[in-house]
Design a binder for these strands. Structure first.
Lengths: 211, 211
DNA sequence: GCAAAGCCCGGGACAATGTCCCGGTTGTCC
DNA sequence: GGACAACCGGGACATTGTCCCGGGCTTTGC
């Protein structure tokens, strides 16, 4: 049976040792190598040829996010599974933007960790319970805002749509056969209903709501 | 050992039968019940008390997305794992917005399916290989646009950040100890570099780029 | 040392944006 | 008929954004 070759990246030697001991008895996994910084990880991957990189985020020098970004860019077949203490939106979404295939908090039980490594190796994406909540919150949060979208009149919806393609008031007026002043007034009442102060926010809200 | 109680929701009886036969020998899983429509699933969950609902999307009447949305709203402790043939962005992100904890394509191998059910039951989020690509594509797509982000001066970045929280020019000026006129000029040059015409577009671009 | 380039700071003049008033017209519902 | 809302627009005013201008500052290179 082909074992999954894992590269450990973490600046804390004790943690690497613990992780290594934890994963050693697992049949389907083998620790191919360890790195203590992002730079070192990037230097190693070419020779080590890991299937999965277990990446910490908080490291001196090049952080895990930057390392992940370069790693997935230069070695698209290698999957990155983030294993971090950081349980906040910024860290999670930065890792996702960088191309990580999974995100598990340090402190996860062994079974969860092994399952995550196997899943990521198989091309799946997997996120620990706390992270999963953030992820679904991200998407259902969008849906929730959509539900809360206030009711606009036909004219207002029409104008908001044109506004969302970044047309100016005079252009909108010309296209709808209205006076520029009328458009400005409609725009103003749209802002009031959306509880926003200017075009910028209005368009942001409209986009978020899949308008 | 506590088995995971699974409710199967699919309008195709043969598929339910196959799935049931596939999962029956699995120790940690028990099929608690089956439903052939979204409505039926919603009616059943109260009595069946499943841990995980295996949800098809394309069903007559109430689709899987609507059923998922109501299910997670009324029973937050129940996890929904979508098992669908649909491999397109609209289906995937609609399911995520509805609150699904996972998404696996029909045709997944048994091991992957079992792993997904176990992971979802544990509160994790998991996505099959094809879906994982869409998910990372969603986030790294944002990142990719960021790479094309033009270079701004230190002052310009600073002002763009404040602008992105919807502050007005006078407020920004006051906060940075500048004249309102200077801020306007900086803002103007930011627009030029971003190739946009107004605040609205500039903020949109900045947000897309994870600025 | 000195010039060129780039950033930063601001003013002037002007057009577009947005706000808070106002009045008038057209429907619709009771 | 009367109440109500959507729609259209004007007046006056502050804010925003554009295209000029010039002066002070540091960095780079000859």
């Amino acid at each position: 049976m082909n074992q999954i070759r894992v590269l450990l990246v973490d600046d804390h030697p004790a943690f690497r040792a613990g992780l290594s001991a934890l994963l050693k008895p697992v049949r389907e996994i083998v620790i191919a190598d360890e790195a203590s910084t992002g730079e070192q990880a990037l230097a190693l991957v070419g020779g080590v040829q890991p299937d999965v990189v277990l990446m910490d985020l908080a490291m001196p020098g090049m952080g895990g996010v930057a390392a992940t970004e370069r790693l997935v860019r230069d070695h698209p077949h290698i999957r990155v599974l983030v294993l971090s203490m950081a349980d906040d939106d910024d860290s999670v979404f930065a890792a996702l933007r960088a191309g990580a295939r999974g995100y598990v908090l340090k402190g996860a039980r062994k079974a969860e960790l092994v399952r995550s490594i196997v899943a990521v190796h198989g091309g799946e994406a997997i996120f620990g319970p706390a992270i999963a909540s953030r992820l679904t919150g991200y998407f259902t949060g969008l849906a929730r805002r959509e539900r809360g979208f206030p009711e606009l009149t036909a004219r207002e919806r029409e104008i908001l749509i044109l506004m969302s393609s970044h047309l100016t008031n005079p252009v909108i007026a010309e296209r709808l056969g209205l006076s520029g002043k009328t458009v400005r007034n409609h725009v103003s009442s749209i802002f009031a209903k959306l509880h926003v102060a200017d075009r910028a926010e209005a368009i942001t809200r409209a986009r978020e709501s899949g308008f």
